Computed example of a mutant assay.
Amino acid sequence: MNAPEPAADCLFCKIVAGDIPAEIVHATDTVVAFRDVNPQAPTHVLVVPRSHYETAADVAHWEPSAAADLVIAAAAVAVKEGLGEGYRLVFNTGPAGGQVVPHAHLHVLGGRALGWPPG
């Protein structure tokens, strides 16, 4: 399958295209990482595939190398952000799972101790 077309009404597709400004902290041919506008930790960066998929499972199914690229980019972000003490990676899936934007995205959270359970 070829990568899907960007969704015309997708906030993250518009950020990837440069149509909506964001503070980009890392970018590759397959992913873009930018600061969350509603941070839940001192460091809160979203890593999104350039291709539009609604969930992480969709990315893994249709473009498995891009799923790996999300995690590789998240690790690069953690290094750039000085999160050597540790960080959390989170995929929210579906409205009941806390996914607000229906474009797969990986949260990189850190900069403070992150308790368990989250939330």
Rank of each mutant, 00 (worst) to 15 (best):
C10D: 09
P6E: 08
P21A: 13
T28R: 05
F34R: 01
D9K: 13
P6W: 09
E5Q: 15
F34K: 01
I15P: 05
V25K: 03
T43D: 02
E23F: 04
K14C: 02
F12T: 03
E5C: 10
I20N: 10
A33L: 00
D29Y: 03
P39G: 05
T28W: 05
K14M: 06
Q40K: 14
C13T: 11
V25L: 05
F12P: 01
N38W: 08
G18Y: 07
F12N: 04
D9V: 02
N38T: 11
I20F: 04
A27Y: 00
D29L: 11
E23T: 14
E5K: 15
I20L: 15
A8N: 08
T28K: 00
Q40W: 01
V16S: 04
L11P: 00
F34E: 05
D36Q: 07
P42T: 11
A7H: 14
I15M: 01
I15V: 15
V37L: 12
H26I: 01
E5G: 11
V32D: 01
P21Q: 12
I20S: 09
N38A: 14
C13N: 09
I15Q: 07
D9P: 08
T43R: 03
V16N: 03
A33I: 01
A22W: 03
P6Q: 04
F34N: 01
A22Q: 08
A8I: 05
Q40I: 09
V32P: 02
E5W: 05
E23Q: 14
C13R: 09
C13A: 12
P21V: 13
V16G: 04
K14G: 06
P42R: 06
E5P: 02
V31P: 01
I24K: 12
I20T: 14
A27K: 12
D36M: 00
V32R: 03
F12A: 05
D9H: 12
I20Y: 09
D19S: 14
N38Y: 10
